[in-house]
Amino acid sequence: MATETESHGDEAAHGGADAAHGGAEAVGMPQLDFATFPNQIFWLVVTLVVIYLILSRVALPRIAAVLAERQGAITNDIAAAEDLKLKAEEAEAAYNQALADARAEAQKIIAEAKAEMQAELDAATAKADAEIAAKAAESEKAIAEIRAGAMQSVEEVAKATAAEIVAAMGGKSDAKAIDAAIAAQLKG
């Protein structure tokens, strides 16, 4: 039995199910093969130290720096965006202000133009009125003159007619009496 186990060598030794291989327990569970422990522990320590050095010297500071840089960039971008937004609002306000100013200016210009036109119109009207008044006065004066001339003509015609009528009647025409009589008639 024992010789058979040996002759089978490794192959049989791994058959953990067979009760005959009680001595192969360590191989059946390689984790409990204490002969390999120093080896594993040595290489584990080496590995962990190497990983620790790589991480703490290179990898972690680099990643931390990248993350911080990204955070900074994001913060900056947000601040810049706020700034731009503020500027845009200012620009809008300025635009609105300019618009309002322009409107007011336009209103002012319109009002001035209206006032100017009104003044010109008033002046023209006044001048026209004055001219009309002058012309009317002139006309009235002419009419008065004409009327006065007509009255005088009537008086002369009346005197002449009266003198002729008196002469025709055979009376002696008294110039003074005729004048007085005509003046009295005309007044009446």
Partner: peptide
């Protein structure tokens, strides 16, 4: 304790993989 074994090999691969990812 110092013999390079398959433990050494695969721990080495672990270091390589971590370095590839993180560095």
């Amino acid at each position: 304790w110092y013999t390079p074994t398959n433990v050494t090999l695969w721990m080495f691969f672990t270091v390589v993989a971590i370095t590839l990812l993180l560095v």
